[in-house]
Design a protein around this nucleic acid. Structure first.
Lengths: 151, 151
DNA sequence: GTTATTTATATCGTTCACGATGAAAATATA
DNA sequence: TATATTTTCATCGTGAACGATATAAATAAC
């Protein structure tokens, strides 16, 4: 007999992992028609909020490592969505800036958030209980984002 | 000015994605010492519940495609954790069965669930509100798992 | 000012995820 | 029975994730 703690139905991580994957899949048709992936879309969200950021700031905002973000940005640069220029004050930094094309994507993708919202909102997450769910997820993220450096 | 729906702080998917990644990272030190990855651990959970399952059943239980699960299982077979044998009734199926080593891992990893629980439970998810969070995530998964086949 | 350390990116290797495609076996249909 | 279709798994290519390592620039220590 399997121990109760090992049951898949008792796993928080599996739920988060599955929900994350399925929701990312829901983005796929909306983004792929514009040649974007979901992590690339996240980079756009970051840069739309604040343009011209060093790689490190983008990585930190997304809780990712630079070795994940760098190749991602290189692909986006190749697509003409952004440009990477050496920092003037600090030559180690690569400043990532949106191109015209990158800025335009904000209009082109204008319907994405509501389209996603419609896929999820009806059955499960309502505008009323969403903040509470957000708070819990933020809590989980906060409790884990500090302690992951330790082994 | 960025539209409100585009703000990273208003994204459900980004929260799920981040929480999932960080929690998976929390598993890493506990699993890697035994040569396991998190998805491989999930396969173990599935097989501990019910041994000798075809690839398809394992994939469906994890909401994954067989083209993700197959190479994963091949690696685990190479590690001697499981064996894959052709189905007798249906020769198309590959029946995945735990080896002695695979079954033993249940004892070896006995402390993993509580170790993970300790990393998360204190600040955010308490035993009291966990079921509610589980229900919401299950709701999201249910609402998305059906509609993903459509483009 | 020279050396050591830290910081910011980049590169590399491995393992997922997943769309697309292929091969073989089972089932349905003619 | 012969052919068509579906099902099951495998293979391939691409893009993340991430640990480990490398490189160059900035900062600290001497």
């Amino acid at each position: 007999m399997i121990k109760e703690e090992f049951r898949l139905d008792n796993q928080l991580c599996f739920r988060l992992y599955t929900a994350s994957r399925l929701l990312t899949q829901a983005y796929h048709p909306l983004l792929s028609v514009h040649g974007l992936t979901y992590p690339q879309y996240l980079v756009l969200l970051v840069l739309w909020e604040k343009d011209a950021q060093p790689v490190n700031d983008i990585a930190k905002r997304l809780f990712l490592e630079t070795n994940t973000v760098t190749p991602l940005l290189q692909r986006m640069e190749k697509e003409g969505i952004l440009i990477r220029t050496k920092g003037k004050k600090d030559a180690r930094q690569m400043i990532v800036s949106l191109t015209e094309k990158g800025r335009d994507l904000q209009n082109i993708l204008a319907e994405v958030p509501s389209a996603i919202g419609n896929k999820v909102i009806c059955k499960s997450v309502t505008p009323e209980n969403a903040p509470e769910l957000f708070r819990k997820l933020d809590d989980i993220i906060a409790s884990l984002s500090g302690s992951t450096t330790r082994t």
